[in-house]
Write a protein that binds this DNA or RNA. Structure first.
Length: 487
RNA sequence: GCUCCGGUGGUGUAGCCCGGUCAAGCAUGACGGCCUUUCGAGCCGUAGAUCGCGGGUUCAAAUCCCGCCCGGAGCACCA
C-alpha cells in the first residue's frame, strides 16, 4: 500500500551551478511574517543549495529604521517559519550589525571613483537625471568626496542633506538605473533601530547592502521576484567598478492566490485594523495560518517546487495546495465521526442495548480500533442526511442496516455486502457529551458533537468521516475546537 | 508615459534557446466507473487548448521574425 511511486519533484538544473560550490541566501526584511509568496525564495534557495550540496545563508535585511521598520518579533517569527518548513541555514546575518563593512566599501568606492556624495536634494537630482545630466558634485575630486563622507559619518548632515550615489550611465534608457542611491542619513534619534538603536546615522539602502553582502558572502545564485529585476541591472554597475562577478540571478514571476492578500502591507494593515485576528488568521495565506489549518510543510514545499522558477505570473488555486496536502495527510489522519447542527434524534428499533461498536481509526490500519457505546437505542444524525434518506434503507456506519423513518429506524441486518448501494451515514449516540466547533475557511464556525476519542488528537489533523479534514486546535473539558483543513 | 518581463485546457506546469518525433505531455480540478465499513485515498476512463491576435520566413512554427492586444513589475534618500 505504501509503495513509493511518487516521482520525487525535481528542480530543473541551475545555470552555472557546480556541486559543492553553490551558495544561496534568503534575505527577508523582518517587518512581517512569511507567507506562501515569500516562502518561495526561501524554499528555492534552500532546495537548490541542498541539491548542489552547497551553502544556504539566512540574512535579515533590516536597513530601514524609518519606512520599513523591522520588529524584533519578526526575526524570531521568520526563523520559526523557516524551521517549520524544514529549512536549515548554515549562516545567519543581520545587516544592521554590518554597517561598518558597508562604510568601508564606501571609502573604497570613493577612491576608485565609483560613487559620489551629492548634496543635491531629491527634486533637483531628479530634474538632472531625467535630462541625463549629472548633478554638479558628481565629478568633484576624490578628496572632496572623502571629506563629505567624513562629514556624513560624523553627523555633519541632517536627513536628506547628503546621499551617496553609485555612478552608472546617465543615458541609460531606464531612468531608475541612473546613478542610484546607496546610502542616506536617517535620524535614529527619531527612528531608533530595534537592534542597534541610534548607534548609526548613515544607513545603506537595499542595493548597496545587498550587493556588498552577496559578494562578500560568496553568493552564487539569487532567487527573487521580478520586482528586483532592475536591481540586478543597477548592482551590476557597482560589481563592474569593483571588478566583481555578479551572481546568477533568477527572477520569478508574481505569485497570487485566489482571493487571498499576499502582500506584507495588506496583511499588516488588516491585522492592525482588526480585520484579521492575527498572523494565523485562517483567511490569510501566511505560513502561520497554513500551519494552523493543518497544511503540512511538505505540501507547501511541493507546491513551490512544482511551480519552479517560471517567470510568468501565477494565480494559484488553493485546491492545488489542498490536493497535495491531502495526499500526504490522508494515509496518516485518523477517522472520527462528528455530527453537525442541525441534527435529529433517531430511535433505533429491533436492536439489543447496550451495544459496543468497533470502528477502524483508519481503513488502512485494521489493527487500530476506536469504539462507540450505545447505552440507549437512540442516535443523532445530521438533519440533511435524514431528510434525504427518509423511507430508504441506509447503512449506519459500523452499526448496521436500517430502514430509516421520520423519527425512528428499524434494524434489518448487518450484511455489509447488501449495504453496498445504501447511503452510508455517520452517527453518534444520543448521549454524546463531547462538543466540537470547527472554524471554516470562510471565517464562520459550525457546531456539533463528536466522538470522545477525538479529544486525544490535539494538534493532529484528522478526518471527520464524510465531512472534511481538520486540525484539532484545542481541547477544553468537553469542547473541542478545530480548524478546517480541506475536503 | 518610459523601462523591463510575461501570455500553452478552469488552475499550475512541460515543450520555446537548438523549427518536424507536439493534430501539445504531466499534475490538479470537473464528470463517470471500479474498489472501499466515508462524499477521502487508490485504480480505470471521459470531457477540456485551433499554444493571446494578425502577418511573415520555411517543405514544415507553440517553437524564428515583425506588428498589435492583454497582464504584471519597476520608474523611493523601501526592501
Amino acid at each position: 500500500m505504501e509503495e513509493k511511486k511518487k516521482q520525487e519533484l525535481k528542480l530543473p538544473p541551475l545555470e552555472g551551478a557546480e556541486s559543492g560550490k553553490v551558495v544561496t541566501r534568503f534575505a527577508p526584511n523582518p517587518n512581517s511574517v512569511l507567507h506562501l509568496g515569500s516562502s518561495r525564495a526561501a524554499i528555492l534557495s534552500y532546495e537548490y543549495a541542498k541539491m548542489y550540496k552547497g551553502k544556504f545563508i539566512l540574512r535579515f535585511e533590516d536597513t530601514d529604521p524609518r519606512l520599513k521598520r523591522s520588529d524584533l518579533k519578526f526575526y524570531r517569527y521568520i526563523e520559526e517559519d523557516l524551521e517549520w518548513l524544514g529549512i536549515k541555514w548554515d549562516e545567519e546575518h543581520y545587516q544592521s550589525e554590518r554597517l561598518p563593512i558597508y562604510y568601508d566599501y564606501v571609502e573604497k568606492a570613493i577612491k576608485i571613483g565609483a560613487v559620489y556624495i551629492t548634496e543635491c536634494n531629491r527634486e533637483k537630482f531628479k530634474e538632472h537625471i531625467m535630462m541625463q545630466k549629472p548633478c554638479p558634485d558628481r565629478d568633484l575630486p576624490v578628496e572632496v568626496q572623502l571629506k563629505r563622507w567624513e562629514k556624513m559619518l560624523s553627523g555633519g548632515y541632517k536627513e536628506g542633506e547628503a546621499v551617496v550615489r553609485v555612478k552608472t550611465d546617465l543615458s541609460h534608457p531606464n531612468p531608475a538605473v541612473r546613478d542610484w542611491p546607496a546610502l542616506r542619513i536617517i535620524d535614529t534619534e527619531k527612528y531608533s533601530h530595534p537592534i542597534v538603536g541610534n548607534k548609526y546615522k548613515v544607513w545603506p539602502l537595499y542595493n548597496w547592502a545587498s550587493a556588498i553582502d552577496d559578494h562578500l558572502m560568496g553568493i552564487t545564485h539569487i532567487f527573487r521576484g521580478q520586482e528586483h529585476f532592475v536591481n540586478m541591472v543597477r548592482q551590476r554597475y557597482l560589481y563592474e567598478a569593483f571588478g566583481w562577478k555578479y551572481p546568477h540571478a533568477v527572477h520569478y514571476g508574481r505569485l497570487m492566490i485566489e482571493g487571498k492578500p499576499l502582500s506584507k502591507s495588506e496583511i499588516e494593515k488588516g491585522i492592525k485594523m482588526g480585520v484579521y485576528s492575527g498572523y494565523d488568521d485562517i483567511r490569510l495565506a501566511t505560513l502561520k495560518a497554513l500551519k494552523r489549518r493543518g497544511i503540512v510543510p511538505e505540501a507547501i514545499k511541493q507546491l513551490i517546487l512544482a511551480m519552479g522558477i517560471n517567470t510568468n505570473d501565477a494565480v494559484i488555486s488553493l485546491e492545488n495546495l489542498y490536493a497535495i496536502n491531502r495526499k500526504i495527510i490522508d494515509p496518516i489522519a485518523n477517522r472520527y465521526f462528528a455530527v453537525f447542527k442541525p441534527y435529529v434524534v433517531i430511535v433505533l428499533k429491533n436492536i439489543e442495548i447496550p451495544k459496543v461498536i468497533q470502528l477502524y481509526k483508519h481503513p488502512n490500519r485494521k489493527n487500530e480500533i476506536r469504539t462507540l457505546r450505545l447505552e440507549k437505542a437512540e442516535i443523532i444524525v445530521e438533519k440533511s442526511d435524514h431528510e434525504k434518506n427518509v423511507g430508504k434503507e441506509v447503512r449506519f456506519m459500523g452499526l448496521g442496516n436500517f430502514i430509516l423513518e421520520k423519527d425512528y429506524a428499524t434494524f434489518t441486518d448487518n450484511d455489509l455486502a447488501r449495504a453496498k448501494d445504501f447511503p452510508h451515514l455517520h452517527w453518534l449516540p444520543s448521549d454524546t457529551r463531547t462538543k466540537i466547533n470547527v472554524l471554516k475557511d470562510d471565517g464562520n464556525e459550525i457546531e456539533g458533537i463528536a466522538e470522545d476519542g477525538l479529544k486525544l488528537e490535539l494538534n493532529n489533523v484528522v478526518q471527520l468521516e464524510r465531512k472534511f479534514f481538520c486540525r484539532i486546535e484545542s481541547v477544553i473539558d468537553n469542547t473541542i475546537k478545530a480548524v478546517y483543513t480541506s475536503k
